[in-house]
């Protein structure tokens, strides 16, 4: 199963990745090539097989509801590319979430 240009663009948009034209072409080829290889799992008989999402069989890991010290506000924004009044500054937001 290959990957058409539209799919590449859709996925790039979902992933917030601008791609140049030749990147789009290269990615389309490479991803198609990789997908052709991984297609081999489609041949496997997997009905009734439980999926594994965790390599460890642990359950119910919880911490007590206790307050721990936070970073101080300056430290929290120390690495911010842009900040204002102790907040992270971002360009205008056009879409609602």
């Amino acid at each position: 199963m290959g990957l058409d240009r539209a799919a590449v663009d859709h996925v790039a948009r979902l992933a917030r990745l601008n791609l140049s034209d030749d990147e789009r072409t290269r990615m389309q080829d490479e991803l198609t090539h990789i997908l052709e290889h991984v297609e081999r799992i489609q041949a496997l008989e997997l009905d009734g097989v439980e999926p594994t999402s965790h390599a460890v069989r642990i359950t119910n890991v919880m911490r007590p509801d206790e307050v721990r010290p936070s970073l101080d506000a300056q430290e929290a924004v120390a690495n911010a590319p842009e900040k204002e009044d102790g907040r992270f500054k971002v360009p205008r937001i056009l879409e609602e979430d």
Partner: peptide, 22 residues
């Protein structure tokens, strides 16, 4: 709750921006 869902920062209203972060 006293603390946040996945960390020990305090749950509260207002306060200095980003002062309850980790």
């Amino acid at each position: 709750t006293q603390s946040k869902m996945f960390c020990g920062c305090a749950v509260a209203f207002a306060g200095e921006p980003n002062s309850r972060t980790c």
